[in-house]
């Protein structure tokens, strides 16, 4: 198994585990709504960044595409989290 494939499988496992944690742990009533929601939002932001960098291969893409991807993540996460905290 090549290093690239091992890296993709590791990222996939992390994405699966963080999805399970968001859905069946942080979204449950044992956390306050704000704490649970912020955890869910931060995990979603991390997942989006991982999908972009490792699945869409933005980490190997030309600089302008990397910047466009980063701008999207920051703008979307900033807007959603900012409005939630208003």
């Amino acid at each position: 198994m090549s290093r690239a494939v091992r890296s993709v499988l590791a990222v996939w496992l992390l994405l699966m585990a963080s999805t399970a944690a968001s859905t069946w742990w942080f979204a449950q009533p044992l956390f306050s709504p704000v704490a649970g929601t912020l955890a869910v939002m931060l995990i979603a932001t991390l997942k989006v960044a991982l999908v972009m960098s490792h699945f869409m291969e933005l980490r190997n893409a030309p600089r302008p595409w990397q910047i466009a991807g980063a701008v999207w993540v920051i703008a979307a996460a900033g807007t959603v989290i900012g409005i939630y905290l208003m």
């Binding site: 968001s22 859905t23 942080f26 979204a27 709504p33 649970g36 929601t37 869910v40 939002m41 995990i43 979603a44 997942k47 989006v48 999908v51 972009m52 699945f55 869409m56 979307a76 959603v80 939630y84």
Partner: peptide
């Protein structure tokens, strides 16, 4: 296909998990 995946990664918490 990765974009489709990425969009769902955003839509799911927004609709189902934000309390």
């Amino acid at each position: 296909w990765h974009m489709v995946d990425l969009l769902w990664v955003c839509i799911f918490p927004l609709l189902y998990l934000v309390r």
